[in-house]
């Protein structure tokens, strides 16, 4: 059984059909990436899975439970965590307080100290800046904070929406190494990216989204060698 299975997902913005019935699945332990151009429906897919955008039809099944209609705030407790597009960290709170918010759904308070140390170990720069107001962080640090915040709830699956957005190539590489590392330690990853080359380089499998439909899917390495993909997304 797949950890996350999306079936015939349809989403509308008013009369506009943003997702035209897409289906895909993520197996436990995988990194699966959803690539596609701007406006293809990648973020819409992510936000509808997590319940921030209403789903018109289709279903989302997570860990055997139908979560199509589950309100967003209940998903963190079920082990699903999202790093949203644009990071959306709490600008008025400190780094430490942001991480506290990430642990909001965790009932067992005794693990908090260890969890926050784990995040600091993974992102040492967050530790240096723990009492700093989050709006004063650089773009890369904000991305790290958003990821650290999402990890505080011990997710089984991490949904990452455009983690490379607005970052320098060097930082992108750093962030992607960390994603790979998080996955190796047992967290399943669903990654949405415009930077197809980077995404395919760390993913196991990939789906290509074009104007609300999945047009191609397969092994990430194979897709990297696909001529159409090379032309359209890898700039070769």
């Amino acid at each position: 059984m797949a950890l996350l299975e999306v079936k015939d997902l349809e989403v509308y913005y008013g009369v506009i059909r943003a997702l035209k019935g897409i289906s895909f699945k993520v197996e436990k332990g995988e990194i699966v990436t959803l690539i596609g151009a701007n406006g293809a429906g990648k973020t819409t897919t992510m936000q509808s899975i997590i319940g921030l955008i209403p789903i018109r039809s289709g279903s989302v099944v997570y860990n055997g439970n139908d979560i199509t209609k589950t309100p967003c705030h209940k998903l963190a407790k079920l082990g699903m965590s999202q790093v949203p597009e644009g990071r959306r960290i709490f600008q008025e709170l400190t780094v430490y307080e942001n991480l506290m918010m990430g642990a909001y759904s965790v009932k067992n308070k005794s693990s908090f100290k260890d969890d926050i140390e784990d995040v600091y170990k993974r992102f040492p720069r967050l530790k240096e800046r723990k009492n700093q107001i989050a709006s004063t962080l650089s773009g890369g640090e904000q991305q790290m904070l958003a990821m650290g915040r999402a990890l505080m709830s011990h997710p089984d699956i991490l949904l990452l929406d455009e983690p490379s957005m607005g970052l320098s190539p060097l930082l992108v590489t750093e962030i992607f190494d960390i994603i790979k590392e998080i996955n190796k330690q047992g967290t399943t990853v669903l990654l949405v990216e415009q930077n197809a080359k980077k995404a395919l380089s760390i993913a196991d499998r990939a789906y290509v989204l074009e104007t609300g439909s999945i047009v191609l899917e397969g092994d990430a390495k194979e897709l990297m060698d696909n001529d159409d993909i090379k032309k359209a997304y890898l700039g070769e």
């Binding site: 967003c72 705030h73 709490f90 600008q91 709170l93 909001y104 709830s153």
Partner: peptide, 24 residues
């Protein structure tokens, strides 16, 4: 307090607050 900080979080970004498990 935890609830107080949740209030700040909701006032700043309702969607992101919900992602944290906060019932807005």
């Amino acid at each position: 307090t935890k609830v107080g900080r949740a209030m700040i979080a909701v006032s700043e970004d309702k969607g992101a607050a919900q992602l944290m498990g906060i019932n807005s």
